[in-house]
Simulated assay, not measured.
Amino acid sequence: MQPPYKVEIQRLPGNEDVPLPVKMSAGASGYDLHAAIVEPIELAPGERKLIPTGFALSMPNGLEAQIRPRSGLAFKHGITTLNTPGTIDADYRGEVKVLLINLGAEPFVVSRGERIAQMVFQTVPVIDLAEVGALDQTVRGAGGFGHTGV
């Protein structure tokens, strides 16, 4: 097991009552994120809104934070994140925000402090892209979307 990465977190002014990201169990991969909104926000079916979380991060190069839906909100209410997973790059220092959409049939109200998404940290490999004139051949070839019949 490798030693932990140091990720600094800054609570933004006016959000002292909003919980910082937290793992809800010892084996959880993701940190739950909470809505840092002033007033409740209603999401009508099909509507999307950008929800602030009240914090910013500083991560070392080689890490990214991915913003993902919470399974309970998705299953019970049809609430998910649009750009899933959303990527927070290591050099971004602004407030982390979550792009929620209501894919359910009923309006959904987001309240201050409510758990709205989860954040999972991932390592980012260093890649050397090398342009070539032709690629090696495989059995699959260029078969893409649905090519296996599923």
Rank of each mutant, 00 (worst) to 15 (best):
A36G: 09
A36L: 06
A36N: 07
I37L: 14
I37E: 14
V38K: 12
E39Y: 08
E39Q: 12
E39I: 04
P40A: 08
P40M: 12
I41S: 08
L43V: 04
L43A: 01
L43Y: 04
A44Y: 03
A44Q: 15
A44R: 15
P45C: 03
G46L: 03
G46V: 04
G46H: 05
E47D: 06
E47M: 03
E47R: 07
R48A: 12
K49A: 15
K49Y: 05
L50W: 04
L50T: 11
I51K: 13
T53H: 09
A56R: 14
A56H: 04
A56M: 04
L57C: 12
L57M: 13
M59C: 07
P60V: 00
P60N: 00
N61L: 03
N61M: 02
N61H: 06
G62D: 10
G62T: 06
G62K: 00
G62N: 06
L63D: 08
E64K: 02
E64T: 02
E64D: 10
A65K: 01
A65H: 13
A65D: 08
Q66F: 09
Q66T: 06
I67L: 14
I67G: 05
I67K: 01
I67S: 00
R68C: 15
R68E: 15
R68T: 14
P69K: 01
P69S: 00
P69A: 02
R70Y: 02
R70I: 02
R70N: 02
S71P: 00
S71R: 11
S71Q: 08
G72H: 11
G72E: 13
A74L: 10
A74N: 10
A74Q: 11
A74I: 04
F75R: 11
F75H: 15
K76N: 08
